[in-house]
Design a protein around this nucleic acid. Structure first.
Lengths: 215, 215
DNA sequence: GACATAAACTGAATTCGTCTCAGTTTGCTT
DNA sequence: AAGCAAACTGAGACGAATTCAGTTTATGTC
């Protein structure tokens, strides 16, 4: 579940791809993408600037790759977490919790993702960038679809009392990912605390019958 | 309430500042900030590229100004909407509604704001940019503070059943502003519909006693 | 009606970061 | 030890934002 795995199918052992991605996550996450010079990352990794182009077509291509990896992990976490849930209410709690399983670097990666979602809206000029962009878009759709399915199931079971499953899913997602705007490792709240509070909030948002009983 | 008012105290009648801002909102909002060439805006407005520097120190300075104006309007809308609310539940509904009073261009402006929040995190090199950045930051704080006050009032009155007012305020804000990521004028939902649905969702999120009674 | 003045503006040149080009080096395979 | 692809490099091209060194335009003043 580390940030830079499942990269390419056949990854040469002397490839610095993973190191570049990790470094880029740290820099982009802490200083911002625009503010980070591509050359700085080359220096950090210990290679010449042009060597970066052996791995990525452009700085944006690297960014999109980071976003795609995060989205991909997110899909996997969701599925792993909700697969064994006995009912919809438990599935919702598990889904929310899965969103906060994060190392400090994962937190940065999720912040990067949130901060650059707008990149996915318009086509990219170059081949590989566009490829990653489209992958990102379909992963976003998959995530929305998965959450929508979860909500719909809860509605059908009579546990969630909301009308529009897709809209509710989007609300839940906004609620959940909004955290990455302000969360900082070592800040006022730990991820464990956040998990609990957000799971409750999510349950209230879908007007889950279980919450009413509990309160 | 137009997008480019309350600009400077003494605004010369032949100033193109307001036109530049409107044009920039349209371009930045539709094509994205990075993707929009500064020169394009000059062309749209009908002036040479260098004339822009008479009004803004840089492209980013213009962006930050747009964000600051939006934040400022947001504060005003919140206060106007909640001032006359008879109780906390009504105030929450009014606050949510105030967030969706928006012309198509306002919608773009709010999307721009959301997409570039990360700019506010790190200091800016130039004087005026940094000035706008700090203004934005304090406006963001003011908005969080206002929402927190609203939630706290509801808690004190026993109407909202949540623990942490600040955290709840942040959740509400995430919920409310998340809409600008997917809303499009002429899309599936109108702003009126969104207003209703989001007001309900917000009420559930704070576990408002009124919602329980109503359902 | 000429004159001062500040805002509004301009074309040419500069800067700076991203990216391309034309190769060279490295390490693995056969 | 030759062949080969991955990994890498320095020198420069490119493009968009920005600076420079002024010129034009409107407005109020004498």
């Amino acid at each position: 579940m580390s940030t830079a795995d499942n990269a390419q199918r056949t990854e040469s052992p002397r490839s610095k791809r993973a190191v570049i991605i990790s470094t880029a996550i740290d820099r982009f996450g802490e200083e911002g993408f625009e503010h980070t010079k591509w050359a700085t990352i080359a220096d950090d990794v210990g290679i010449g600037q042009t060597a970066l182009y052996h791995y990525f077509e452009s700085k944006v291509h690297c960014l999109l790759t980071i976003m795609r990896l995060e989205l991909s992990n997110s899909v996997e976490r969701f599925q792993a977490a909700t697969a064994s849930a006995p009912d919809s209410a438990a599935a919702l709690t598990a889904a929310v919790a899965s969103a906060y399983e994060a190392s400090p670097r994962d937190a940065l990666q999720r912040r990067i993702l949130q901060n650059h979602m707008d990149l996915l809206a318009t086509p990219r000029p170059s081949k590989k960038e566009e490829e990653e962009r489209l992958l990102c878009r379909s992963l976003v759709q998959e995530i929305e679809h998965n959450w929508t399915g979860l909500v719909q199931k809860g509605i059908d079971e009579g546990v969630f009392r909301v009308d529009d499953a897709l809209l509710t899913a989007r609300m839940l997602l906004a609620l959940v990912v909004g955290v990455w705007r302000w969360y900082r490792p070592g800040g006022e709240m730990t991820l464990e605390q956040i998990t609990d509070v957000m799971a409750d909030a999510a349950a209230r948002l879908v007007d889950s019958a279980d919450v009413r009983v509990a309160s």
